[in-house]
């Protein structure tokens, strides 16, 4: 009887083992796709941007005050190609993002506070998905609405008040983008506010503070780092947003801080430069990659800082 049973603990089946190794190798290969994507993005942007900087000096790109790529006649005429100063695009991007954040910050934080602290569970379960719906609407829809409805209203109000507002004003694009950003701020801020320990609220209530005092003087200060993180993520979104500005903001590269004027953004210029007929080696097309690289550095930088802040915050109350 004992002889018929095998009590050996040696690895018996070589084929099974090979199978395990193969599967593991496939899994590792899959998870490398994400890395290759990043490498691909950085490499392709950097490569084309490098070609661009061979034609246009980096300093001119970074510090040039004028943007008019359309004057490029032939790609081999270096001096005769257009003006490639990114600053007007950056200022336009920042102006629209600023307007958007002016709308989204108060709306987002106040909504989050209301949902986290005041709303009954029933209300919360109804309102929260509705706010998140805002994040699920394709941006092309926002862009259409901004161009078709919001911009004319703003222009009408302007002429009613007696001053000229461009039909592609930064204001229209910024306002609509602001609404789009509300759920990004509110849902992350909501999490952050909920993570503030109940003990702190109890301490404040226990001393006779009203709910509002508890929120503004205890909860929000404690949640500030996390809320700042959510704001930075929203800014990063605003800077990278494309369709709303393509449809509602203009093409004119104005270096202005006036929200009633038309401005253009980095993403708008990328789209403009790369749609339609293109010769791949012209400074015009390559410029799009240089802008995109700039955009990537900007958004990733904001994102990394934001995630750091949020992580630190989470550790604090973990």
């Amino acid at each position: 009887m004992p002889s018929s049973r095998d009590f050996t603990l040696r690895r018996s089946n070589r084929r099974n083992q090979i199978k395990e190794y193969v599967i593991q190798a496939v899994l590792i290969a899959c998870s490398f796709v994400a890395i290759f994507t990043t490498i691909g993005i950085v490499a392709s942007l950097a490569f084309e941007a490098f070609n661009f900087f061979k034609k246009i000096p980096l300093t001119e790109f970074l510090f040039g005050l004028e943007w008019s790529p359309q004057t490029a006649l032939r790609s081999d005429q270096v001096g005769a190609s257009g003006k490639f100063g990114v600053l007007p695009l950056l200022s336009g991007t920042l102006l629209i993002s600023f307007i958007a954040m002016c709308v989204a910050t108060p709306l987002g934080i106040l909504s989050a506070v209301y949902l986290a602290e005041f709303a009954k569970p029933k209300t919360r379960n109804l309102i929260k998905p509705m706010l998140e719906l805002l994040a699920g609407i394709p941006t092309v829809v926002y862009g259409f609405f901004a161009a078709l409805v919001v911009a004319p209203i703003i222009r009408g109000m302007g002429s009613g008040a007696g001053f000229q507002i461009s039909s592609e004003s930064a204001l229209a694009a910024g306002l609509v983008m602001g609404i789009m950003l509300v759920p990004f701020i509110s849902s992350l801020s909501d999490d952050v506010i909920n993570a503030v320990p109940q003990a702190l609220r109890d301490a404040s209530y226990g001393m006779g503070a009203t709910e509002t005092e508890t929120i503004t003087k205890v909860v929000l200060p404690a949640a500030t780092p996390g809320i700042i993180g959510s704001l930075l993520l929203a800014i990063s979104r605003a800077i990278g947003e494309t369709m709303i500005v393509v449809m509602a903001a203009g093409l004119a590269a104005n270096l202005t801080a006036n929200p009633f004027e038309a401005v253009t953004t980095m993403t708008v210029q990328i789209v403009t430069l790369l749609t339609g007929d293109q010769e791949f080696d012209s400074a015009k097309t390559l410029a799009a990659f240089a802008i995109a690289l700039f955009l990537l550095v900007l958004t990733l930088g904001l994102n990394i800082i934001a995630l750091r802040i949020v992580d630190k915050y989470k550790q604090k109350y973990a």
């Binding site: 702190l200 301490a203 404040s204 005092e213 200060p221 404690a222």
Partner: peptide
Amino acid sequence: GMVFQKANPFPKSIFDNVAYGPRI
């Protein structure tokens, strides 16, 4: 007033913790 099981000072300075009640 109330004192809780686990000490729960606000994430503020010692002074501001004590001054919280008188202030509100």
